[in-house]
């Protein structure tokens, strides 16, 4: 079961996230669970690996908003990086970026 302490240990800026959720822990945790289950993570990989950087940008951008609102720093940071690269449609090897996101997201899911 997901707990505030576990999230804190994970590296999330829990105090900031909680404030945004009006210090309602239950509400915050519910939203984090929802974010962890967001299919956009998988869709982002598919889009980018399939070469659709435009779609990739939209997905990354959306994920950035959600993870930032919940202050899920470990996953937000790589999402923010890939969003900027995708915004300018940078031709680069996105593999390592996608891996870093997947790894952070994996750790988050493990807390559930």
């Amino acid at each position: 079961m997901l707990t505030i302490d576990a999230l804190r240990a994970y590296g999330a800026d829990v105090d900031d996230g909680l404030r945004r959720c009006m210090n309602n822990e239950g509400f915050y945790l519910k939203l984090v669970e929802k974010a962890a289950a967001d299919p956009s993570f998988e869709q982002l990989r598919e889009a980018v690996e399939g070469g659709d950087l435009g779609r990739g940008f939209e997905l990354a951008h959306a994920l950035k908003g959600v993870t930032a609102n919940l202050s899920l720093t470990p996953v937000e940071t790589p999402v923010r990086e890939i969003t900027e690269l995708l915004r300018s449609r940078t031709e680069t090897d996105y593999g390592p970026y996608l891996d870093r996101i997947a790894e952070a997201k994996q750790k988050l899911t493990a807390l559930l």
Binding site: M22, N24, F27, L31, K34, A35, G65, V66, N69, L70
Partner: peptide
């Protein structure tokens, strides 16, 4: 985005 919507709603 469900999360953002729920936060604003709250």
């Amino acid at each position: 985005e469900f999360v953002n919507r729920e936060i604003l709603k709250a």
